[in-house]
């Protein structure tokens, strides 16, 4: 298992390089001279050239790319921001916890609501509970996050004035952003839980458990849910990815100092090192999330663990034979 995790972590290196290559290419082909934003459009020619030199923009693209990648892997150096000349790594690291908190909070809240709802819908298939849950799930999955955020503001801050409209002071100010990101996830996860659960409760082992005299609720949550979790877990991985994106919207609307807002600003000012840095950190986060998802898989479903160990064994045997 340890070897597997190690291997997966090593696999992140090419992933990160690949992501960087794409972002780097985009930054090169996107129109607009980053120097404009470093010194302003009215700067003198000398100042422009000096800035170009300082940021290494006068070097060929491939040299810049190699240098950048080398810096990322050897010194964890994500470059220097064009707009405020601060190290990007530092800038991101003090924003990242906020984004992570926001994302995880919204996913956890979403799961806490979606799992019971999905299970209930599956158990009471075609009942009014099921119909209402699935209709609202579809609704919440479909609504644009941005619009929804403004609606939340309008209702809870402007009209009812019960929740703060911006800032992060205390738990109350987290409610709206978490709700904004989480609500689509609730819809999505509830649907996945329901369909997975529907499949599971038709399985023989559910009947076996009932035939043992187990309570229906225990059968559903102990025997059913754990089996139904697999697709849900796979979805949680993706959901975290999507929520990282949702955090961008939430952060800019609710004035939350996270990586999303940082990247949005950076994109607007063509501050490529900041954009790249943000994407690297998000890509690594996403890779780690996916690794965690795979590890959770093997905990939830012992079949995968055995399969994995068996594969490792045959490989070792092959190695020994060779």
């Amino acid at each position: 298992m340890l070897r597997y995790i190690l291997k997966r972590i090593l696999w992140m290196i090419p992933v990160v390089i690949g992501v960087l290559l794409i972002v780097f290419t985009l930054s090169v082909i996107t129109p607009g001279d980053p120097v404009d934003n470093m010194v302003g459009p009215d700067a003198t020619v000398e100042a422009r050239e000096a800035a170009r030199e300082e940021m290494g923009l006068n070097q060929p693209v491939y040299v810049r790319f190699v240098k950048y990648v080398w810096g990322v892997f050897t010194r964890l150096d994500l470059g220097t921001s064009y707009s405020n000349r601060q190290p990007v790594a530092k800038e991101i690291m003090h924003r990242f916890p906020v984004t992570l908190k926001l994302t995880l909070a919204s996913v956890i809240v979403a799961l806490a609501i979606a799992l019971p709802l999905g299970v209930l819908s599956a158990v009471k298939q075609y009942s009014w509970v099921d119909n209402i849950t699935m209709a609202s799930a579809l609704f919440f999955v479909s609504i644009p996050q941005f619009w929804f955020a403004l609606m939340l503001l309008l209702i809870f801050s402007v009209k009812l004035q019960i929740l703060p409209a911006s800032g992060i002071n205390g738990i109350r100010s987290w409610i709206l952003p978490v709700a904004m990101i989480g609500v689509g996830n609730v819809g999505n996860l509830a649907r996945v839980t329901r369909s997975s659960m529907l499949e599971v409760i038709r399985q023989d082992y559910i009947r076996t458990a009932r035939a043992k005299g187990q309570r229906k609720s225990v059968v559903i949550f102990k025997h059913g849910l754990r089996n139904a979790l697999m697709p849900v877990i796979a979805n949680v991985g993706n959901t975290i990815g999507v929520s990282l994106g949702g955090a961008v919207v939430a952060e800019s609307i609710f004035s939350i100092p996270g990586v999303g807002q940082f990247m949005l600003n950076a994109i607007n000012s063509r501050d490529w090192p900041s954009v790249q840095g943000g994407i690297v950190v998000l890509a690594i986060t996403f890779s780690i999330v996916m690794l965690l998802v795979d590890i959770v898989y093997t905990i939830v479903d012992p079949r995968l663990k055995t399969e994995f160990q068996a594969r490792a064994k045959t490989k070792r045997k092959k190695g020994a034979a060779a």
Binding site: D204, T208, R210, G213, N227, D301, P302, R303
Partner: peptide
């Protein structure tokens, strides 16, 4: 019925492959 199932009446199902819960 819960007092009957598994206690007074035991049941064996057709397909042992799927009758056992794979995660316990």
């Amino acid at each position: 019925f819960r007092k009957i199932r598994g206690n007074k009446v035991g049941m064996i199902f057709q397909d042992p492959m799927s009758a056992l819960n794979p995660v316990y």
